[in-house]
Design a protein around this nucleic acid. Sequence first.
DNA 1: TGCTGTCCCTTTGTCCGACAAAGTTAGAGC
DNA 2: GCTCTAACTTTGTCGGACAAAGGGACAGCA
Lengths: 255, 255
Amino acid sequence: MPLAPLFRPIDVAPAYQKVADAIEREIVNGRIKPGDPIGTEHDLVRQFGVNRSTIREGIRVLEEGGLIRRDSSRRLHACLPRYSKLASRLSRALVLHEVTFRELYEASMTLEVASIEGAVERATDENLAELADNLMRSEAVVGDPALLAECDAEFHVLVAKASQNRVLQLAREPAAQLFYPTTEMIVTGVAEGGPRLVAAHRHLIDAIRRRDREAGVLWTRRHLQDWRRGFEKIASLDRSVEHMYMEHAQAARRR
Amino acid sequence: MPLAPLFRPIDVAPAYQKVADAIEREIVNGRIKPGDPIGTEHDLVRQFGVNRSTIREGIRVLEEGGLIRRDSSRRLHACLPRYSKLASRLSRALVLHEVTFRELYEASMTLEVASIEGAVERATDENLAELADNLMRSEAVVGDPALLAECDAEFHVLVAKASQNRVLQLAREPAAQLFYPTTEMIVTGVAEGGPRLVAAHRHLIDAIRRRDREAGVLWTRRHLQDWRRGFEKIASLDRSVEHMYMEHAQAARRR
DNA sequence: TGCTGTCCCTTTGTCCGACAAAGTTAGAGC
DNA sequence: GCTCTAACTTTGTCGGACAAAGGGACAGCA
């Protein structure tokens, strides 16, 4: 029988962590709003009563977490964490955990179908305009796998955006970021890949415009199955995502 | 007509960022494997030829990103980023973006249904044993909303784990973390909430064991609809997730 | 033998002071 | 009113310093 707990574990966090936590708390509970300035390092030195080096370590933590940024003049201010930056953290984690393409495919099937359902139900005219613009640009680069893959990635981001569900938007992003580089490979390797991709996008936009849920789901499924078939021509679905893909995610994060 | 690009944009990143990037690169492309030691700060000072303060700022970045940790003796080593830690970053972002409970509910409906489908298809005996154990513990604390909510959160993590799809596992986590505190409130407020919750879990385990997909989906839907009905008794689904919820996510992250 | 306490070395967390480069501000000059 | 310049501020980096905590070796003791 263990002894009755007489003492609570005492909180021994290094000072830089406490600095970061203190600022984080003010941001997440709204006392510091996104866009508000945080003050200079010297200000923080005075407020927290610790050395500037300590403050700077705390700032790095918050910066990496996406809670604060430095503007053009390098001054600190709070900001809304950006989905794509956070998502590339997750993509990185998925790569390190060596998830398989099958897992990516299965999860994406779920997430993209949910996105299109939301989009069919709630897309605005502005969403549709963005999608149409994307389609035009896709048609123009149908012969260039790299650019087309980029357009494809953007297309699905726009569909998710049209769903008006930011949780979904965020949830689909990590897997999508890992898809992107493979799309390029597939379009390169499969002759009719580019035109089929663009055709699927056209049908999807059409389904959204007509609020035709069945068609939206159907074409999303086909679109992903096309990806799958293309991928299986060059590799096994059970292969794990390779480290090389991280290059893309890293580049995306820095943007 | 712009001039032909004669120069590439040069990479002007601060030194601490370059240190972090260099170490990150080695980890994500596998030259440093999870668990490998990184070396002491002094080692890194020698290797990179910069000051220890600079090294330390770079380390903070990687630490926050979950790529490296300090073990009990505070020595640095590479590690696999933990889903729950990353997910709490995302939860934090969702709170700051002020997503509504409706968005959470809709996305979770999709993600939890997908999880149970995967679990029904692929759960192992070990997964089932963990779920059964969770159920037992839930039954024991059915009268204590806080503990029951904790069990409920764990239950759904286990279902996602049983789906054997780590992408799904990761995708559902951020939303789930925001659900958790509300579950406690609902079980407190609705008299029959606790027993219904446990009953749903029992049916879900049963469905997984019998590999009965229909039943799994059905009971997952009911379970979530129960949550929704309970929630609507105390607030509107269109209310945005409040900053106070972050307290829970923060606590979870530190674990 | 197995446990304990001690000394020494390493490592981390923190502090101080310093300086160049880049950005900001205020004022002079037109 | 506008531009240009000269302070001033802020950041990024550096060097060195020191206390506290851990790890390891070693002696002392049951």
